[in-house]
Design a protein around this nucleic acid. Structure first.
Lengths: 342, 342
DNA sequence: CTGTTAGCGCCTTCAC
DNA sequence: GTGAAGGCGCTAACAG
């Protein structure tokens, strides 16, 4: 267990094995032109010394690290979390490793600065390419491979994957409208997030198409959390003319809303239908399954990885903007409006 | 916008500013012996060129990166997620950045290998120190600063922060026993996780102390998810002699259990008291607040960061094993056993 | 098959 | 105050 300094370098290995550094390097990179015997000897020494190559040095020299960076503002949002999952799963199959940088809290004012900072910190150093989730910046000063997930604007400098939030919301609304609902409440998400804005747009657009006037009382601004969903639903329920259906901008809010409805002595979907958005895991089991819009978040991660890897390998990308389709999942929290007898 | 290759290096800055690289380096590191004028000129050029120093090169030369690594097996577990939050928050205050490596799925067989791999990959390269969450390995081949959170064994080679899982479980049990409950069901967590094992131990130890014989039927093995909590509770409810209280090894399971109890036409806590573990955010709002054991997960992250930073700065660490105390939070899902009249 | 040589981008002496 | 030179750990030519 010779350990001179704190780190054992390729030199130490070479010395211990009685060969030159380049031979060790060849073994490290699985070059084929090394004698069987030498190869195994070096492998043994490497193990004995507990040597691991320095990512820093390697990346500096070979401009290739097989590491992909993921920059995400807030892991507390289920959206971000699911993206990470999807990216992770996609990367496992490939020969890449994943490094995540997270700001911890997207409401943090300094995030936009740190986001840019990290893009340049990672790229060109230890990362072959980067995926940024819901970037705040509209452009990045990097020539390195970069893909965005759910960017704020449709047209960006870089390839992106976006959820079809507006269209997804419209499919939910059409479902409710088709069931005969006319008075539909909306529980919004954090107004600073693009996804929340687009879903609200979908809500409004659907009503317009159906020639139903907009009632501002029916729109409650939430923040994508269960607690706020609960509170917003309470307000909707206590309206003089209460809605017969509620469309929540995400499943968490929908779960809170269902709770509020039950607490108010009403039932779902008999008294009020509820539709969510996201299709998080809980949505399939809460209250017998929530009707929701599946946006295939994990798939967005997968697509982003595919695009990024193509970028890294200089392969052409067919679509610079991938729109992930959504799908309405009808479960047991929505049903046809029961019109008053007569 | 001169960009020769893809990256703009310190050399480009030096050339553009008409100085030598060393002067630029001085500016970069805020050395004081640079003329005001030169300093500002270089700063301007840096901004113009959009230069950012390469983490790789810097770390290689100066053996200090101000980056802390966090290795976590599975972000889907609320425990891990909250640790990340805590670590992140703690790090923001200090002058460090955070890099997270996540395996995506702790049930993955290859995780132990990849864990070790990443410890050595990060440390000695781009990271000044590492925090490993619920490490599978009991030792790591690194001389670099490393702190573990919730390691599998009490005695380890490295400093660690552990939750007092067993004691916490016992406090929950004593609470229920104090309320008069004698038939208490247990919904366990993933049996491969140390925390799950220790909580089960606490359950058993408390019963033993109270001289209540162990009924194997009352112990359901779960996996820390809400769905399984639901299923386990169903089984407990349908027991010939059903329990009057359920202690779930985490809040997610407890939430599932409450659901199951309600679905069975019973009420919480009138028919069955429920106590959880973790004190995740939802616990405070579901069903009027779940009685649970707060283990201050985020604080564990904070403590780990403090220990790690001390390690990095070669300051002495007072405790090599920090036991994070737990605290019982009595809310509205537990109440005294209603004994049959007479 | 293996050793030698030359940097990658940066920081740190040591001169001037 | 500033520039020149050396080397961090590694890989990629080129020799042998």
């Amino acid at each position: 267990m010779a350990r001179k300094k704190s780190t054992v370098t390729i030199q130490d290995v070479a010395a211990a094995a009685g060969v030159s550094v380049s031979t060790v390097s060849r073994v490290l990179n699985n070059k084929d032109d090394v004698a069987e015997e030498t190869y195994e000897n070096i492998q043994r020494v490497i193990k004995e010394l507990g040597y691991t190559s320095s990512l820093a040095a390697k990346s500096m020299r070979s401009r290739k690290t097989n590491v992909i960076g993921l920059i995400v503002s807030d892991l507390n949002q289920s959206f971000c979390l699911n993206v990470v999952k999807g990216v992770n799963r996609a990367i496992e199959r490939l020969d890449y490793d994943l490094l995540v940088y997270t700001g911890g809290d997207s409401t943090d004012r300094t995030w936009p600065v740190r986001e840019r900072q990290y893009v340049s910190l990672l790229n060109g150093s230890i990362t072959d390419g980067i995926i940024v989730v819901t970037p705040t910046a509209e452009t990045f000063s990097t020539n390195f491979p970069l893909v965005a997930i759910d960017p704020h604007r449709d047209s960006t400098d870089f390839p992106a994957v976006i959820a079809t939030n507006r269209i997804g919301a419209m499919s939910a609304m059409e479902h409710l409208l088709g069931l005969g609902h006319r008075r539909i409440g909306f529980i919004g998400g954090r107004p600073d997030l693009q996804s929340a804005i687009r879903r609200l747009e979908g809500y409004k657009d659907s009503l317009r198409q159906a020639n139903i006037p907009l009632d501002p009382d029916l729109i409650q601004i939430g923040d994508f959390t269960q607690e706020t969903g609960y509170r917003c639903a309470k307000k909707l329920i206590s309206l003089p003319e209460r809605p017969t259906a509620i469309f929540a901008a995400n499943d968490k809010s929908a779960i809170g809303a269902i709770e509020a409805i039950i607490d108010a002595g009403l039932t779902v979907p008999n008294d009020i239908s509820v539709v969510g958005f996201d299709n998080i895991e809980e949505a399939s089991c809460v209250h017998g399954g929530i009707t929701t819009v599946d946006q295939f978040i994990a798939d967005m991660g997968r697509v982003a990885v595919e695009m990024l890897v193509n970028l890294i390998q200089n392969k052409p990308i067919e679509n610079t903007l991938y729109r992930m389709p959504t799908r309405l999942l009808v479960r047991s929290t929505s049903q046809a409006l029961i019109t008053k007898a007569g």
